[in-house]
Design a protein around this nucleic acid. Structure first.
Lengths: 195, 195
DNA sequence: CGATATACCTAATGCTATTAGGCTTTGTCC
DNA sequence: GGACAAAGCCTAATAGCATTAGGTATATCG
């Protein structure tokens, strides 16, 4: 009867697909079970609880995003690499809105230690190579880029730009320009700011 | 018997307090009703549904944040104003985590049109006065600042910086420095980027 | 062939949002 | 002052959700 037996991976994938299709908040164990043609208690043999399932979607999204970023920035440097990194994030957020939302939740142990998370940080740091920043400033610059890109996409997604002109699309390039400018003009740390 | 009769304002405030105390997701009509010493169906006379209640908390948070930012940036300019604006956001996020979470949800009509939202945008634009940006670039710069500040605080809050060194506190000042640098070195729009 | 483990199932509990309709208190109009 | 009406709260009921407990069939292994 069972065409495919349930596995953690298939459950997480179904949850991610459901998130993309009907919104992250609609990812309930019931809905995922329905989609898999199974009763919800059956999922508990494979997944600890709902929170663990959502964490699984987060890890999946991190992995997928890392892969896209990796391809995007390969063979590029400086502004071109920065733009590719940002656009990879934006494309992912657009194409997989539910998976993207999974990235915007408190990170658990598993997600924090995941290869995807590590890779994204490493790839962001790699983009900095072309810029005149001392190694000691890389952490801060990575956080800066991450904050701006994520912050922008989140506000755009939440409709924060929808009620004002010009459209968010126009600002996107200006924001990347500004990031590029900030990295070129990266300020020297003052007295109390050195770690 | 009724010390204070139920009002929309008292319900929204109770919801906001509950969000700060036990997390935004724990703001259920049941819990709010309990806190008010009332049965949950009674709330429906004042509030359309749970979503409207949460939207109310968002509007409240926007109002409070606008007020704080307003006080913070008064009498300051340039980097000092920028830092005050960012710190006002950060302080609010710390002191009222639940209310702050209310700011991170899809904005409804009411929140988008609220005075608080408008004020925060206006105050952010005011910070730009000291910087050499043409008026036409202000929209983009406001979005840039908003994205970075919100993005940083969100990642910090979600624990995204918790697993790496140095602590998030150190980066915060570097991020403000970087924002300041970006505004000073604001790039001229290229061909296709002019609205 | 029988024992065991796997992988699903049904049943049950307790939480939530939400709707429908009742009761009690309070103010209002004559 | 008294009848009336409207607030403003209540109880009752439905339906969906997460989660636990325990049953059953199928396939594996000795």
């Amino acid at each position: 009867m069972k065409a495919t037996p349930l596995t953690v991976a298939s459950i997480v994938e179904a949850a991610a697909d459901l998130a993309d299709a009907t919104g992250f908040d609609s990812v309930t164990l019931s809905a995922v079970a329905r989609r898999l043609g199974v009763r919800s208690p059956s999922l508990y043999s494979h997944v600890k609880d709902r929170d663990a399932l959502l964490e699984g979607v987060t890890v999946l999204a991190l992995t997928e995003l890392a892969s896209r970023v990796s391809v995007a920035v390969a063979g590029r440097a400086e502004r071109s690499a920065l733009e590719a990194l940002a656009d990879a994030h934006r494309d992912y957020a657009r194409e997989s809105p539910g998976r993207w939302d999974a990235l915007q939740r408190p990170v658990g142990e598993e997600a924090a230690r995941s290869a995807g998370a590590r890779d994204i940080v490493a790839l962001t740091a790699a983009v900095l190579r072309g810029y005149p920043l001392p190694e000691s400033e890389h952490v801060h610059a990575v956080r800066f880029i991450g904050s701006t890109v994520n912050g922008y996409l989140r506000i755009e997604r939440n409709g924060g730009f929808a009620h004002s002109r010009p459209s968010a699309a126009v600002s996107w390039h200006r924001i990347i320009d500004a990031l590029d400018a900030a990295l070129r003009a990266w300020p020297a740390p003052s007295e109390g700011e050195r770690p």
